[in-house]
């Protein structure tokens, strides 16, 4: 999985590309651990080809940490394959989900 980073307003935007499963989830966790704890995030999922529950677990874990440090975490541009996992597990209730990255980075 590739992670590319840019900053818009006070948000760090992470664009993920590729597979987010049990073998790549640690990469994402480590990357986030390298950012300041209170840094607000937008995670762009448009180029995620495949997400399973281990990948979802990583995203939920990040959301929990951000919530406890009063930072914001938003998700943007979920494709249908990603959406299906969120729909079945009802994980959509935990996130603010945007269909556009710049809209997510404004509010």
């Amino acid at each position: 999985m590739n992670i590319s980073e840019k900053t818009v307003n006070h948000y760090t935007i992470l664009s993920l590309q590729g597979i987010l499963n049990a073998s790549s989830a640690p990469t994402l966790r480590n990357y986030i651990a390298g950012l300041p704890e209170a840094q607000s995030l937008v995670i762009d999922l448009e180029k995620i080809e495949f997400l399973d529950s281990s990948g979802l677990g990583a995203l939920v874990g990040i959301a929990r940490k951000k919530k406890s440090s009063s930072a914001v975490m938003k998700l943007a541009r979920m494709n249908d394959r990603v959406k299906k996992v969120f729909e079945i597990t009802q994980a959509y209730t935990l996130f603010d989900i945007y269909d556009d990255v710049s809209a997510a980075a404004e509010a």
Binding site: A58, I88, T89, Q90, T93, L94
Partner: peptide, 21 residues
């Protein structure tokens, strides 16, 4: 069983997903 999503669980979705799919 379905994991209680409101507690932000990081795991335990696997078999639940399989059952639903």
């Amino acid at each position: 069983q379905a994991p209680d999503i409101s507690c932000y669980p990081e795991g335990g979705y696997g078999l639940f997903l399989i059952h639903r799919l």
